[in-house]
């Protein structure tokens, strides 16, 4: 009973938050709503017994990602109202709803649910964090390391991209502009 109440409550909250995030015309509202939605999602993880995942969700999304977005927004003019697309609304909503229905149809198809067996069954008596650790550092060790490298690369890429002079693209400039930039650099060195 408690589970049902919690599920419906958080489901309503998440949907509402995300709905605001995609519909509002204020970037700041959207950011706030998204952050709230992320935290509400972690609630589902806790309900489902994936404690570690829930913790990671809060730390990564609400902490790191949202902080990054907030930081990124400082570069842009966020006070202005975001212009909406003038395209056909029905197409947008129609396509989304159809795809949603199709996904449900696939998940609820008997052929899928009948053939699933647990590859890495949960260990009885161990906490979720221990279980995750066991699986992650045995079976998924290599993907885990690859993911780590990927994050490192992404970090370096983020720093470099946001760095100086990265807005100049040599392929999009003509010879004259490239020459000017070179001269500028020469002067600085001198």
């Amino acid at each position: 009973m408690f589970e049902a109440v919690a599920f419906y409550l958080f489901a309503f909250l998440t949907i509402a938050m995300f709905f605001i995030a995609v519909t509002t015309s204020q970037a700041l509202y959207a950011l706030t709503a998204l952050a709230a939605g992320m935290i509400f999602i972690s609630a589902f993880f806790f309900i489902l017994g994936a404690d570690f995942l829930g913790a990671v969700q809060i730390v990564v999304y609400s902490g790191a990602v949202m902080a990054l977005y907030a930081f990124g927004m400082m570069f842009f003019d966020t006070t202005r109202d975001v212009k909406e697309k003038n395209g056909n609304k029905y197409i947008v909503i129609g396509l989304s709803v159809i795809s949603a229905i199709l996904v449900v149809a696939i998940f609820s198809a008997p052929i899928v649910s009948e053939n699933i067996t647990a590859l890495y069954p949960m260990v009885e008596g161990a906490g979720n964090t221990q279980e995750v650790g066991l699986v992650l550092f045995t079976k998924y060790l290599v993907p885990f390391e690859v993911a780590a490298v990927m994050l490192l690369v992404a970090m370096i890429a983020g720093i470099v991209l946001a760095g100086k002079d990265m807005d100049l693209s040599l392929t999009l400039l003509d010879d004259k502009e490239i020459e000017e930039i070179k001269n500028k650099k020469m002067k600085k060195v001198l």
């Binding site: 396509l95 159809i98 795809s99 199709l102 996904v103 149809a105 696939i106 198809a109």
Partner: peptide
């Protein structure tokens, strides 16, 4: 959507 419907 097209691919999903094919899958279905």
């Amino acid at each position: 959507v097209g691919l999903l419907s094919l899958a279905v």
